[in-house]
Design a protein around this nucleic acid. Structure first.
Length: 681
RNA sequence: GGCGGGGUAGCUCAGUAGGUUAGAGCAAUGGAAUCAUAAUCCAUGUGUCGGGGGUUCGAAUCCCUCCCCCGCUACCA
């Protein structure tokens, strides 16, 4: 078989937080299984990943914690790198986009596009916050719409009336960061003309998907983007954290993260070349039309890998003789939820990889996630399912089959592979099954049906148990030793096949299995044959999987959602003076009427009695309360909040509520004897 | 509200070029076996395939409509 040359990438995780189980299910575990399988069939493959370390959210985290962005990325790069290692991710390199090689690569792409003249430079007046010393992105500015008077208009458009205008016309602009009045300064940005590539992209997607069978969910996303029409996208920003725009007149500008992050795959491969001492290694993969490039991602990343990255590579290829390969397949997964709800750090819902691996070994997690990958739709991780997969499948089906065979061989055959004798139909049947297995599983993995493949492998362990049962070696050992030897010989061959088939899924346990067998993996497609010679000496058996007790699982479940236990230790509060506090007028108010705001999911229009006057409040609490239940309640409100318009309705204050771990709101209330309008202090 | 994804057995999930009695694993019930981590093996499902309508000889699968859930987004003052 020809050695396929393959690049596999997993989405670069953002170095602004630890990765959780959902991330693993989306872009990492399926990729690792695929890569390990491909290595076993002899493909020439490299597996690339790294941290994505630029962008605004990282600077915000840094500001909040009073540290530098560098400290933020160092922390999460190391945490995530370690988590991946413990989980058994077999990346050839786990790089990072803060490395000089990445900055150089990104600049090279930018300059190439710039010199080709395909980038559009657009000048515009943007608000500049002199106190924060930064240009303000549109969503950080608000003011009064020159058209309708809406006070929450953005700098260049009003969402209330839909008007578009020049930022200079916005009245009373305010910076949302400092509250200062920003000034207008001229700035210019470069735009990548995505629209120009639309027809080529559509053709590319159509061809690749037809030829290589792209997943349905991926095509649906692409269709949506194509239908809306691709727009020019700005590829620069006024910011100081990121890759500097390599032009003399572009001081204080960096490349927008979406532009450079995908290039991280290439720069990481360059880094790998450097480490391996083969300068041109990366070119042999990225710039060879025979290379098959597969990008594993979660669904949130589809547009970047099927549209943006390919269009950038097209633009490069148009002007260079060294041409990059485009993704041949983008097997994006949906999302993994946790116990029925999506992962949420703030609600303490879910578990980080690094924490999980402190409690349990990697393999049970790998198996459990692999058996329920969100390949077709969102799926859930349940603690109970994890326990039952570990105990009922890994320990009872696979572990026990191995264990019963090994104890038998040590007890009756001196720890050596016994010679097989004449084959009965039952033996021939299992041999046939065995020899067809590598192809059966391979066919599924090649189509990225990892979940089905994994289920199929476990079925082989089931078949092993059945074969052992039906053959009854514990009887034949007394009546027909030759027949017994055949049974045990074949059972050991099954274990060998299992070790190989399971290696991509549960590598740590598979290695133990090979050690017990005193053997090494072979070519994948030969692993269904008789690989153990009679007389081959086996090692002692060890327990592969220990069972997980109910109490251990229950403890984990009981800790879920209990945010009160860890009252956000990491959050630091800015101190304020008593005078600052007294600026806020908290007063009791009685709700006199409540009704839903038309065409709104969660807004309620409330009339409240403040004692000295009535107010109208538009509150976003409609998902937690029925309007009729609110009437008569005495709540706490901010009485001197500047009025604002929501859905065209004026809101003259804000009532206070807290959000529970389930997302339901609870109102701050006082008892009935307190008069409306009483100030809280 | 807009866009996208879903609603199949008690639970977690498969299943669309429309076609014989709709599947798997788990759980449940009964049985067999005792080599083995009390582990295994066999048998057992009256599931309105979210509701209603339509196309068709035939629909979980195609069309229309309604209901519910999830995500993103617009409104969380």
């Amino acid at each position: 078989m020809d050695k396929e040359k393959i690049i596999v990438t997993s989405a670069l995780p953002y170095a602004n937080g630890p990765i959780h189980l959902g991330h693993l299910s989306g872009a990492y575990l399926p990729a690792d299984i695929y890569v390990r399988y491909k290595r076993l069939i002899g493909s020439n493959i490299i597996f690339i990943c790294g941290s994505d370390e630029h962008g605004v959210p990282i600077t915000i985290t840094a500001d909040k914690e009073g540290i530098t962005p560098k400290e933020v990325i160092d922390r999460f790069h190391n945490i995530n790198k370690q988590a991946f290692e413990q989980f058994g991710m077999s990346f050839d390199i786990y790089s990072r986009t803060s490395l000089p090689i990445h900055h150089e690569t990104s600049k090279e792409f930018f300059l190439n596009f710039y010199n080709q003249g395909i980038l559009n430079e657009k000048k515009s007046l943007q608000f500049y916050d002199e106190k924060a010393k930064m240009f303000l992105p549109d969503r950080y500015v608000e003011g009064t719409c020159p058209n309708c008077g809406n006070e929450q208009a953005r700098s260049d458009e009003c969402e209330n009336c839909g008007a578009l205008y020049d930022p200079a016309d916005l009245k009373n602009p305010k910076s949302k960061i400092t509250g200062q009045t920003p000034v207008l300064k001229e700035t210019s940005h470069y735009f990548f003309p995505l629209g120009k590539y639309q027809s080529r992209l559509e053709e590319y997607v159509a061809q690749m998907s037809k030829k290589y069978g792209w997943k349905d969910n991926v095509l649906q996303y692409c269709r949506g983007w194509f239908k809306d029409g691709l727009q020019d996208r700005a590829i620069t920003r006024d910011l100081d954290w990121g890759v500097q725009v390599p032009l003399d007149d572009a001081q204080g500008k960096v490349l927008y993260v979406w532009f450079e992050a995908v290039l991280g795959y290439i720069s990481a491969t360059k880094e790998l070349s450097r480490i391996k001492g083969d300068e041109n290694l990366w070119k042999k993969y990225w710039q060879d039309t025979n290379t098959k490039y597969v990008a594993f991602i979660g669904k949130d990343n589809i547009v970047f890998h099927t549209i943006i990255f390919p269009s950038m590579l097209m633009a490069w290829n148009d002007a260079n003789t060294d041409k990059y390969v485009l993704p041949q397949n983008v097997p994006a997964n949906e999302f993994l939820n946790f116990e029925g709800k999506k992962f949420s750090k703030s609600r303490n819902w879910g578990i980080d990889v690094i924490d999980f691996l402190k409690l349990f070994p990697a393999d049970p997690l790998r198996y459990c996630l692999a058996a329920n990958l969100p390949e077709n739709r969102d799926t859930d991780f349940y603690w109970k399912e994890f326990q039952s997969r570990n105990n009922g499948e890994l320990a009872d089906i696979l572990g026990n089959f191995v264990n019963r065979t090994f104890t038998f061989v040590h007890k009756h055959f001196d720890g050596k592979v016994p010679e097989k004798g004449e084959l009965k139909p039952i033996d021939q049947e299992i041999l046939n099954l065995l020899s067809g297995y590598p192809k059966k599983v391979s066919d599924l993995f090649e189509k990225y049906k990892i979940k089905d493949g994994v289920a199929e492998i476990m079925n082989l362990a089931r078949a092993g148990n059945k074969y052992f049962n039906d053959s009854e070696p514990w009887k034949s050992v007394k009546s027909d030793k030759e027949q017994c030897a055949t049974t045990i010989n074949l059972s050991l061959q099954i274990i060998y096949t299992l070790a190989e088939m399971f290696y991509p899924v549960i590598p740590f346990s598979a290695e133990k299995l090979f050690k017990m067998l005193n053997a090494a993996p072979t070519d994948w497609f030969k692993s269904g044959e008789a690989n153990l010679k009679a007389g081959h000496v086996l090692n002692k058996a060890e327990i592969l999987f220990t069972k997980i007790e109910d109490s251990v699982i229950e403890k984990q479940m009981s800790q879920l959602g209990s945010t009160s236990e860890t009252p956000q230790e990491t959050e630091k509060f800015e101190e304020i003076t008593i005078d600052d506090f007294l600026k806020v007028q908290l007063r009791t108010a009685e709700i006199v009427s409540a009704e839903k705001v038309a065409k709104s999911d969660k807004l309620l229009k409330l009339k409240v009695n403040l004692g000295f006057e009535q107010r109208q409040i538009i509150a976003g609490i409609g998902k937690s309360f029925q309007p009729e239940d609110l009437v008569g309640k005495k709540v706490i409100m901010v009485a001197n909040l500047k009025p604002a318009k929501l859905m065209g309705l004026e809101s003259q204050g804000m009532i206070l509520a807290v959000e529970g771990s389930d997302g339901k709101l609870s109102l701050l209330q006082v008892d009935g004897s307190i008069k409306p309008g009483t100030r809280a202090r």
